[in-house]
Amino acid sequence: MSEKPKVAFYWCASCGGCEEAVVDLAEKILDVVGAVDIVFWPVALDFKRHDVEALADGALLATFLNGAIRTTEQEEMARLLRKKSKLMIAFGACSHLGGIPGLANLWDRETIFQTAYRDSPSTVNPEGITPQPRHRVDGFELTLPGFFDTVRALDQVVEVDYYIPGCAPTPKIILAAVQTLLSGQLPPRGAVLAPDRALCDECPRKDSRPEKLMLTAFKRPHEVILEEDKCLLAQGVLCMGPATRGGCEALCLQGNMPCTGCFGPTSRVRDQGAKALSAVASLVESDDADEIDRILAAIPDPVGTFYRYSLPTSRLRRKRPAAAARAGEKIAA
């Protein structure tokens, strides 16, 4: 039997990108595999839930869990893996902050089902069937995981020891995090395993931002031909870089696209969206209420822009259920 520490990878409400990110380590993954025993990784290895249940509590050094918590099954698995692991690592933006799936918190279960299983143009469902937790077929009871009204980040369900940010985490961030965890030199519990400065610090376009930047119009990337070496905010394109933790080496900016905020806020900020909104609002050059409205109207989806990855863990958390239901009625009508 090997003496190597045991680790698990698991996915919840996620797109699979975080799994790709692990594969994206390329040959470096061999170093990881050489250092640890992967005992559970549904996407790659054929171990089952009962294999995990059979482990002693605390038998795993760490679980790397990606994805948000959307269903009852995901909550059960998170609790199970928590019990079996010394360290619970939230891996990627969805697990860390709620992520893209967390934007569903602008609606509730009924509204989401209505859209997904009845109203969407590509749906063919004449009987209007929506997922049910229990269903009897030929005398057998079939079950499906329950679907929560609210999407949660991992630490809203179980205690989390460390966070690896990003949508998805970059290979460099993953390797550094794994090395930190294996080194035994653990940072303070609850730390995000990435630098704690905003992205501008490492952005190659940093110097091109003028000291006094005022904007009379916001543009979306497809509306303008972007200069490749100039601060995107200075080009009128909303960039979340100033409000987002660095560590990704400004990958999106290197691809001539604005930062969308996937690394989340720095440790000093409680609400990334509010901070970004406050910083962006201060760029608007007008004292006239109507003109300000006009300028801000160029940001068509403020929640999806400022809270793209962090709605469930923000101060807003979700739309109030009554309001979400009303929004659903509006969509239906």
Binding site: R197, A198, L199, C200, G241, P242, T266
Partner: peptide, 9 residues
């Protein structure tokens, strides 16, 4: 911690 983003200036 300052990233030098100049928002405040």
């Amino acid at each position: 911690e300052c990233s030098g983003c100049k928002t405040c200036v």
